[in-house]
Design a protein around this nucleic acid. Structure first.
Lengths: 248, 248
DNA sequence: GGCCCTTGACGAACTGCGTTCGTCGCGATA
DNA sequence: TATCGCGACGAACGCAGTTCGTCAAGGGCC
């Protein structure tokens, strides 16, 4: 019981005052792991390889880390440290919101395995919280009411993560044609006429481009349908930003 | 070489006409795998356990399946067979679009590991194509131009998949408090005031509820180009539903 | 100053994974 | 009936995460 907080300082119990045998420490382990993740992908970040990079055995890591899962969470949060969350308040909150999300996306997109890791891990480290807090603040600035903002943050982050995962996994096979490109490109025109017709567009667009477009769509959807809205068509959409049915 | 199509009929080379030793077949393998996936999650679907369920050794599966990855793709597509894509054309295309997506979401949400699998695998089987084709048709009915629809389908499916993955992984730990709930619930109010204030809303809402809300947001955004009417200057956002800059 | 004992480091081993290989035996052909 | 092609699969390989028991270093105590 009493699950300790994995992100707590965990003071590296002074080992009776002696130096720790220089290299081994929580910091060093996470750093080595992130390096392996960046250079060799998620599969390449195994406990044995991390230990090998630190000139020790895998068992030694268990003194500093509960679990592979905990280590993965630490690595993810460390990577999220590079996400910038500007503190300035100003009129262009919309632009700043996109910058935060783009920074988040870039952090995940940078190393191949990171986005996959983010999809598998529930990010609740200090940096993840900092990002969520910043997004909530920006949405509040934009006039989104808190209950909506809560779900919107989830939507935006989840989507940024998912795109990063998809795009960075696709990026790794740029050379010939990926398995997806092959399947889409060879789709029979008579059975799937629409897919066949726009198969080029389905595959087009780099990660950033696609990401930016999608974020715009989501943001547009968040603001459209506000109580006094312009378009006539949406009676269902109107619920989107308003009621959403009180959380039970 | 000449990568064979994993989804092709693959006629189970007649084995000189004799019966195959009844249970073993591509169909039986995929069915057993899907069953294990549903009952024991993604980790529980190992080649050895699948083989065990079929009273044979893991090596035997390689006669019918190239790879674990191929088997996973087959399992995913088989599960997607339950997604309904109505053929009727009518006036309420919007409602039908949501039904297709909801059906897709339900299929993934039903078994814990399936959504995770869908995030890791690139779905390009016949059922995935059928769904994409149906969505393209519905968006076309709704007047979305093809180039936009291509990206929109990706957006919608990716998001439905991501929510299913997140929600179904969260569902598995309903009993005490999941690790996320613990982290969110215990967030320090002074450091993260906004998270603290709405921590209940961050965690509220079941999978379906959350999913339906998000789809509405995305659809609203698709049809209502600019979020800028409510907020400050948005000149970039106008591209969302219109130009998006021609795919290179 | 020397002994002891706490405590962290880590080699070895356990289970289980995906995958490969070489043998075996069934059953159709001649 | 004898042959033999070919699918089935036991055994083994390398690698994974994790655990356990040993070992040595180093401070505290007499």
């Amino acid at each position: 019981m009493a699950h300790r907080d994995p992100f707590a300082a965990h003071p590296v119990k002074s080992r009776r005052g002696g130096p720790v045998k220089e290299p081994l420490s929580r910091e060093a382990i996470v750093a080595a792991a992130l390096d392996l993740l960046t250079r060799h992908g998620l599969e390449g970040m195994s406990l044995r390889r991390i230990a090998g990079a630190l000139d020790t055995g895998a068992a030694s890591l268990y003194a500093y880390v509960e679990d592979l899962r905990e280590l993965q969470a630490l690595v993810l949060d460390r990577a999220l440290a590079s996400v910038r969350t500007p503190r300035t308040r100003g009129h262009d909150w919309h632009r700043r919101l996109k910058l935060v999300l783009e920074s988040y996306f870039q952090a995940l997109f940078r190393s191949p395995g990171l986005a996959q890791l983010a999809m598998a891990t529930i990010a609740a480290g200090p940096n993840a919280l900092r990002i969520v807090e910043a997004l909530l603040e920006l949405l509040d600035e934009g006039g989104v009411e808190p209950a909506t903002a809560a779900w919107a943050v989830d939507l935006l982050l989840l989507y940024a993560t998912a795109i990063a995962a998809e795009q960075s996994s696709r990026r790794d096979r740029p050379d010939p044609i990926g398995p997806l490109s092959r399947a889409i490109g060879a789709v029979p025109a008579e059975q799937y006429p629409r897919i066949h017709a726009i198969r080029k567009e389905l595959l087009s667009g780099g990660g950033r481009e696609r990401f930016a477009w999608s974020i715009d769509v989501v943001l547009a959807g968040l603001f459209h349908g506000s109580p006094s809205d312009t378009a006539g068509g949406g009676r269902e959409e109107a619920r989107a930003t308003r009621g959403k049915g009180t959380p039970r």
